[in-house]
């Protein structure tokens, strides 16, 4: 092991000790509560409202409707708890005039950003995994709601969304190292999150926009995670595994950019 990587791992361990834990733990509960809420309340909706979601998102049965709402319950808390932590990596430190002090440590800037970002992203992934597991358990318990989505397929869908959230947050660090106002960063991140949700809204209101574009349809809209649930059983965990090293690369790239910039 090289000296540089040893220093990085030591620094990572140090940052890990100080990363806020309360937020992610609360958001795990929020994710689980979202799932419980969906499974208790959605079945009480009139058939017309359920049919609206079923037909609009091309779902086969109530299991699909519940799983789709659960996926939102995974993606929203996971992304936003990670975003809150991610703002603290560089943006808040810069605004509070602590960044120069932090960078005075004997650690390379790329390592510094990666070491501060990785614990946040790891906790983000943990929130997604817990919420996804709650979704799978809820579907297993309510087996009578339908067979179009299996608990393992739903778990895979949740893990893929978790992977997406982790990679998106790591990529946003690259933008954050050049932004001075944390709330501008928050706004940019909200825009990015909306960007990932827009195709699903288009599917509901303009399904004809996807005519002749099956690749776009089957890769960009959230319900496609349920249409291909058999594939997601292995693709979901695999994408989360791949997301973590990719996030390291992105966080280090953000750090390298910070090192080259004069945006302190």
């Amino acid at each position: 092991m090289s000296t540089a990587s040893l220093e990085f791992s030591q620094h990572l361990r140090r940052e890990w000790r100080f990363v806020p834990r309360r937020g992610p733990l609360v958001m795990m509960s929020v994710g689980v509560l979202c799932v419980v809420f969906n499974h208790l309340v959605l079945p009480l909706f009139p058939e017309r409202a359920l049919a609206f979601m079923r037909v609009g998102f091309r779902l086969e049965d109530m299991a699909g409707v519940l799983a789709l709402n659960d996926l939102m319950g995974v993606y929203f808390p996971t992304f936003f708890v990670g975003l809150t932590g991610s703002l603290g990596v560089v943006l808040l430190a810069r605004e509070e005039h602590r960044l120069e002090l932090l960078l005075a440590k004997p650690v390379r800037t790329a390592d510094f950003v990666a070491a501060r970002a990785l614990p946040v992203l790891a906790w983000t992934a943990a929130v997604g995994v817990v919420s996804s597991t709650a979704m799978a358990i809820a579907l297993a318990v309510q087996a009578e709601v339908g067979t179009s989505v299996t608990p393992l397929g739903a778990l895979g869908g949740g893990l893929l969304l978790t992977a997406l959230a982790v990679v998106l947050l790591a990529a946003l660090q690259i933008a954050f190292v050049r932004i001075r106002d944390p709330f501008t960063g928050l706004l940019v991140a909200c825009g990015a999150w909306f960007g990932t949700m827009m195709p699903t809204a288009v599917l509901l209101y303009r399904p004809d926009a996807f005519a002749g574009h099956p690749v776009v349809l089957h890769n960009l809209v959230m319900p496609s995670l349920l249409w291909h649930e058999a594939t997601l059983r292995w693709l979901g965990p695999l994408s989360l595994l791949l997301a973590l090293p990719l996030s390291v690369v992105l966080a280090r790239a953000a750090g390298a950019w910070l090192e080259r910039s004069d945006a302190l």
């Binding site: 806020p20 309360r22 937020g23 958001m27 929020v30 009480l44 909706f45 009139p46 017309r48 409202a49 929203f76 808390p77 936003f80 708890v81 975003l83 809150t84 932590g85 703002l87 603290g88 808040l92 944390p182 709330f183 928050l186």
Partner: peptide, 26 residues
């Protein structure tokens, strides 16, 4: 705290927005 405060506000407003039109559906 700013980060945590924004997150809590976002979650609570998200909940209110999510339930805003439920009375029309049911």
């Amino acid at each position: 705290r700013r980060g945590a405060g924004a997150l809590v506000a976002l979650m609570l407003l998200g909940l209110m927005v999510g339930l805003a039109l439920v009375g029309f559906y049911q």
